[in-house]
């Protein structure tokens, strides 16, 4: 198992600035699944829809679900709303 720190942005700030999950493999898809389980544990299943429309980033790179992360920290970016 690998521990991944997820940095929260936007609506996910309601969960805190960051949280840690454990994954069997470090694909973004696995991280997404683990975050989904974390939402259930935190009684925030209402954010599941937001999670489905969110993207993960490592450093300044947006990640597609099939890629693997190289480090142990990612950012979770919900739909953007600047302006």
């Amino acid at each position: 198992m690998t521990a991944i720190t997820v940095h929260c942005l936007g609506a996910f700030r309601d969960l805190g600035d960051r949280f840690t999950i454990e994954v069997d493999d470090v694909s973004v898809a696995s991280i997404r699944d683990a975050v989904s389980r974390h939402l259930v544990q935190m009684n925030r299943s209402d954010l599941e829809g937001v999670l489905k429309r969110s993207v993960f980033a490592e450093g300044d790179e947006l990640l597609k679900d099939h890629v693997t992360v190289s480090g142990q920290e990612v950012s979770l970016l919900p739909p953007v709303a600047g302006g």
């Binding site: 309601d14 429309r53 947006l62 739909p79 953007v80």
Partner: peptide, 9 residues
């Protein structure tokens, strides 16, 4: 929090 535009591709 206000909804927005997904960056997911």
């Amino acid at each position: 929090w206000l909804d927005g535009h997904s960056l997911r591709k």
